[in-house]
């Protein structure tokens, strides 16, 4: 436990002295702010037009602006994560391997699992830090908007983002542990995420066992329910097992460094 905390502390310190983390967080916040503004403008305009029509024809349901904005916004956030998480995890192991510091970690009285968990929680903390300002913004909006969307929906959306982000971080850490090159780690992660994104593409057309399996694998499909405010246990299980599997594979990969070379 102490060993894990030591690794965690070191990783956090590393994130805060390296410009990479600041740049990633800044890019994320700037892009989310931009998309939020565009979305809001667009949806308000649509709702305005819809309400004009309903005055003329009558009967159209009113637009739920906050819910719509949130739902679309979290769709965009998931796309941003696709691009940004590989950069958060690319150096996690690759750089230690290249610099030879893995030799220090692996000859210290910490287990491989403690090393891997310490690193995973650090990258996860950075994800939380990255999302925090957006949560503040939404809390403000929900507090002041009329009609207000239920807080439960907001909670479910953030739960979804954290689970999705955690899964992508676990995947990225695994790829980082496979190579000494940050660039290769980032590219492999990006490729794998992209694959998991599009894996359900066209699976609706044929409903074979394979296509439903592929459907299940799609990391973003399980995310949709969360953005609609639905917390489905099967989705929770999917992400949690994805994360556990990623951590397990990373531990195996770290262990295999002893057998391969370092």
């Amino acid at each position: 436990m102490k060993g894990m905390y030591a690794v965690y502390r070191k990783e956090m310190g590393h994130y805060f002295v390296s410009p990479v983390a600041y740049i990633i967080v800044a890019v994320f916040l700037i892009l989310t702010a931009y998309f939020f503004n565009r979305l809001l403008a667009l949806i308000i305009q649509q709702s305005f037009e819809a309400s004009l029509e309903s005055i003329q024809g009558g009967g159209a349901p009113p637009f739920d602006v906050p819910s719509l904005v949130m739902r679309n916004f979290f769709g965009i956030v998931s796309t941003l994560l696709l691009f940004l998480t590989p950069m958060l995890t690319m150096s996690v192991y690759a750089e230690e391997r290249r610099r030879g510091t893995m030799e220090l970690l692996m000859t210290s009285p910490v287990t491989d699992l403690q090393i891997v968990l310490g690193k995973f929680f650090a990258s996860f903390t950075l994800l939380v830090i990255m999302l925090f300002p957006t949560a503040l913004g939404f809390a403000y909006i929900l507090h002041h908007s009329e009609p207000s969307a239920p807080w439960r929906v907001l909670g479910s959306e953030y739960l979804g983002v954290l689970l999705l982000g955690g899964a992508l971080l676990a995947l990225g850490s695994f790829f980082s542990s496979m190579t000494e090159s940050q660039l290769i780690a980032a590219m492999l992660t990006f490729g794998a995420i992209l694959l998991l994104w599009v894996v359900d593409f066209g699976s609706q057309a044929a409903s074979t066992a394979l296509s439903s399996a592929l459907d299940y694998l799609s990391v973003f499909r399980h995310y949709d329910d969360f953005t609609r405010g639905v917390i489905d246990t099967s989705n929770l299980i999917f992400y949690l097992s994805f994360i556990v599997l990623g951590i397990f594979l990373t531990v195996r990969s770290v262990d295999s460094m002893r057998w391969r070379r370092a």
Binding site: K10, G13, H14, V17, S18, R99, G100, T101, M102, E103, L104
Partner: peptide, 8 residues
């Protein structure tokens, strides 16, 4: 090779 973290 001394296992050092250069940024620390």
């Amino acid at each position: 090779n001394p296992p050092l973290y250069m940024d620390m």
